[in-house]
Every structure is written in C-alpha cells, then in structure tokens.
Design a binder for these strands. Sequence first.
DNA 1: TGAATTGCGTTATGATATAACGTATGGTAC
DNA 2: GTACCATACGTTATATCATAACGCAATTCA
Lengths: 138, 138
Amino acid sequence: MTAQKDMPDGRALTKNETLVFSALEAADQPLSAYAILDRVRDRGVRAPVQVYRALDRLVASGLAHRLESLNAFVACAHPHCDARGQTAFAICERCGKVTEFADPALDGHLAAWADKADFDAHSTTVELHGLCSDCRAT
Amino acid sequence: MTAQKDMPDGRALTKNETLVFSALEAADQPLSAYAILDRVRDRGVRAPVQVYRALDRLVASGLAHRLESLNAFVACAHPHCDARGQTAFAICERCGKVTEFADPALDGHLAAWADKADFDAHSTTVELHGLCSDCRAT
DNA sequence: TGAATTGCGTTATGATATAACGTATGGTAC
DNA sequence: GTACCATACGTTATATCATAACGCAATTCA
Ligand SMILES: [Zn+2]
Ligand SMILES: [Zn+2]
Ligand SMILES: [Zn+2]
Ligand SMILES: [Zn+2]
C-alpha cells in the first residue's frame, strides 16, 4: 500500500500526474519526457503532450524538477521543494546518478549578487557535472 | 579594421567559426543555433550541423557560452573564459539581456560542497532568471 | 441547468541536435 | 614530390525535444 501522493496544495494527483511521477520515482536516473512516455504507454498515455502537461504541473508544484542541462526530469528527493529552483544538482557523467542538494550559503551568495546588480531573481538553475563518489573510485 | 580574433591556443578562427562568432557578438541577446544559421546563411553556411560544429569549438575554447536553460548561445563577455563553466549568467525574462558574471565566492561554495560530497566537478551551470535592472524599473 | 474551469485525448507541427558519409586543405615524413 | 594524416567543410537524412490547435469529459458553482 503506497501512500497516496498529494500536491502541496492538498489536492490529489491526477491519473496522468500519478503515472508520470511514479515513473520518475522508479527511475534511478533522470528521464526525458519521451523516456517517461515509453514507461507509461501501457497505462494509457499515448502522446508526448500528455506527459509534458503532467510534468508542467509536477515541476510547478516542486514534486519534480527539470534538469536544464539534460532536458530531463527527476522526482524531487526531498519531502517537497517549492518551485523556485532553490536546489542544486550534481550529475554524474558516468553513471547518470543525480544528487539534489540545498545550500543556503549558495543561495545567499546569489541573492547578494542579485541585490548588488539590481536584478530581481525569480528562479535559479545550478547544475554540476562531473563524477560521483562511486565513479571516481573505479 | 576589427582585430583578428584568435582561439586561446593562438590559432586563428576558421571561416565558419568567424561567421558564427560575429553573429553572436552582433546580437544583443542569446541566439539559438537556428537563429545563428539565419544570420550566416547568406555568407555560405547552409546547414545546422555546420553551425553546431563551430559552436562546439567556440564553447570548448571559452569564446562563447551555452545557456542551458535557453538552448541558446552568447559570445563571452570577458577577454576570455576557459570552458569550465566558472561563470554565471543572469537572464532577463522580459528583455532577454544576459549578464555574465564571475563570483569566486560562489565557486568556492560549490567546490566546498563537491569536496564534502566527494564529487569531482568538471563543469558548472549557474543561471538566474528574473528581471534586469532596467526592466524592474518600468 | 448552464456557464466556467480543468484535465484529457488526438493530430499535426515546430524547434533543437546529431549521424553518416564523402571532399578539401594544410602540414609532415620520407 | 608524394604518401600520409589530421582537421575542417559540405550534404543529406534522421533523431530528439517540445508545443499548437482542436474537441470532449468531468467537476464546480451560480
Ligand atoms: Zn526537490
Ligand atoms: Zn557515477
Ligand atoms: Zn565568458
Ligand atoms: Zn530586462
């Protein structure tokens, strides 16, 4: 009995949102929209646009994140993030594993720069590419 | 008489590299590869792949940068960056203007996180979206 | 009940990026 | 000089990522 997942505003996930989110949760790597589609086709989702619509809502709610440098998506690793992009990602170039992390000091630095430059930041993208701990070792 | 541009290793830009780089320099916004193609077609560049090949080399050398969150490219705003992605970008959602900045403290924080997580970072992407100083005012 | 809202399904298309192949050119070994 | 190599270029085709435009179904609420 998996717990019923809800959006942060309390409403339950729709059918397509549930299918897409489950696919992301089950994956050990980021998935492209089309890779998600492959995994939910047999549950009745036929077209890319249905996946993208579900992803739009999941990302907006913070239940999933888009990795801009991969054009791919991951389930949020935390109870829930908001959608402001305050989390950063470390992406392994070898095994594909993604580590999501929040670093308040980092946010502080970005906020300080924005303040000094009179830039009103709405969202931030921080993505590191490299080798994860496991892959460095080998 | 514009100065002849060179790669950081000293060699001169090739014909296609020059055309693509000039298009980026002339633009006041990031350009997609296809937008670049539109601007160099009349100089003999016919196909997307020619633009992508020139971009690959310009980005690898640090003369241009790829904005992951836009799938677009800009000329480097500095004398020259290396290709390690140590610069960050503030992107205005209203006017499209991009400000490239380097913040050693930011790099320091990312390096510290990577060290702690035993992650070997090869490159970093940092992109802020929001409103530039001019666009906030209006 | 009937209008508004939201999600779904279908078809078609647009936008971004690369594969696979051959040709041209300039440098270097002999 | 010529055989060889490495690098850039050109052409065609194709792969991958994302959205437009339309109508239908279910829910909410006046
Ligand atoms: Zn998250
Ligand atoms: Zn790894
Ligand atoms: Zn730069
Ligand atoms: Zn602006």
